[in-house]
Computed example of a mutant assay.
Amino acid sequence: MNGSGQGAPKVRGILESALYVENLARSAAFYDRVFDFPHLFGNDALIALDVAGAGVLLLFRRGGSAKAQEMPGGVIPAHDGEGKLHAAFAIAADDLPVWEKRLDQLGIAVESRMSWPLGGTSVYFRDPDGHLLELVTPKVWPTY
């Protein structure tokens, strides 16, 4: 509830998720090789990737967004991140074996596999910066 006693307006979902990386070219090559996400935008501080037409994965060069950035339409406030972050990508349950084979063929080690109480499965692996990536089948959360 907000201060007026009425519920908050509804959001439609999470549009962007950001990871902060040391080397944009290396990270872009990794995400291209693993996911083949279309590139939406890129410069020396940022690469924006289309995730299934439903979201955007932003790869920021670590420190590259620590100062406000003036753009033609306004100013993007400063932000940055460090440490090993997490992003999860929704997949169909039937595609899980295909994904596991793909990761193996690409030489990407699966760090962990989790079977969830609702019946879903998660497979965890790392990107070149050590960020934890997850492939998630339905029935991990009540909402997915």
Rank of each mutant, 00 (worst) to 15 (best):
G119S: 09
I91Q: 06
Y31V: 03
K101V: 06
P128F: 02
I47S: 02
T137Q: 13
L96M: 15
W141A: 09
T137W: 13
W116E: 12
H131W: 03
N43Q: 01
S17F: 05
D104L: 12
G107C: 14
G5F: 01
H131D: 04
V140W: 05
R26L: 10
V140L: 06
V56R: 15
L58D: 12
G53W: 11
P138N: 04
Q105F: 12
A48N: 13
L59Y: 07
L15R: 05
G130R: 02
L58V: 09
R26I: 03
A90K: 07
L135A: 06
V123K: 01
G73P: 06
A109S: 13
A25N: 10
P97F: 04
F41K: 00
V136Y: 06
D32M: 01
N43V: 00
R12C: 07
Q69A: 10
A68W: 14
F41H: 04
L96Y: 04
V21P: 04
V140R: 06
T137G: 08
N23T: 05
L135I: 05
D129N: 02
G130A: 07
E22D: 14
A29D: 08
F37D: 07
G13T: 08
D95N: 13
V136H: 10
D36V: 10
G64H: 02
I47A: 02
A88S: 06
K67G: 13
A18P: 03
G42Y: 08
V34Q: 08
A78R: 11
D36L: 10
E70F: 09
A93V: 05
I47P: 04
S122M: 00
S4F: 06
D80M: 02
G73A: 15
V140N: 07
G73T: 12
K84L: 09
A18W: 00
I76E: 11
H79V: 08
V136C: 14
H131R: 03
Q105A: 14
L49C: 07
L103K: 08
L135V: 04
V21Y: 00
R62A: 03
R26G: 03
E100P: 05
I47N: 03
A68S: 14
W99Q: 10
F30K: 00
L24V: 04
F37A: 05
P128R: 02
T137C: 12
A87G: 03
P117N: 07
R26W: 01
A68Y: 08
G81M: 00
G53C: 14
K84Y: 13
D36G: 09
V51K: 01
P77T: 02
E134M: 09
T143C: 08
A88R: 00
K67C: 08
Q6R: 05
K84N: 11
D50G: 11
E100R: 14
V11N: 09
L19R: 01
L40D: 04
V21F: 01
L133W: 01
M114N: 06
P142S: 08
W99V: 10
F125V: 06
V98I: 14
L24N: 04
I108P: 06
A66Y: 02
N2Q: 11
